[in-house]
């Protein structure tokens, strides 16, 4: 695949990421912000992969994406449990 294609995909994903970041700062309640944080996890994993494909070294970046997906999930779980989630 040509590098032009991966550059376009990179630009598109960065656009989505910046919009999510701006909307996260505009929200007022806590759980709405957590919603955007959780949505950014998937986008960042795909972003790492496209950077790897663009440079031609895809075998280096896949392992990083794998571990980031698990770490991001653990972070979101800890945040959600801290904010609420206790039975009253």
């Amino acid at each position: 695949m040509t590098t032009h294609f991966w550059y376009c995909l990179l630009a598109g994903l960065m656009f989505i990421l910046i919009i999510m970041l701006i909307m996260m700062f505009r929200k007022k309640d806590l759980l709405g912000k957590l919603n955007y944080v959780f949505a950014m996890n998937t986008v960042i994993v795909l972003l790492i992969l496209t950077v790897g494909f663009k440079d031609g070294r895809e075998d280096m970046y896949i392992d990083i994406a794998l571990s980031y997906s698990i770490l991001g999930f653990v972070t979101s779980v800890i945040l959600a449990k801290y904010i609420g989630g206790r039975k009253r």
């Binding site: 759980l31 698990i70 959600a80 609420g84």
Partner: peptide
């Protein structure tokens, strides 16, 4: 991994919202 973790995270956020 994405298929397994996305619904679990959504469920935990729902629980946090309901119990508040």
């Amino acid at each position: 991994i994405i298929v397994l973790t996305n619904p679990i995270g959504t469920n935990l956020m729902i629980i946090a919202a309901i119990n508040s």
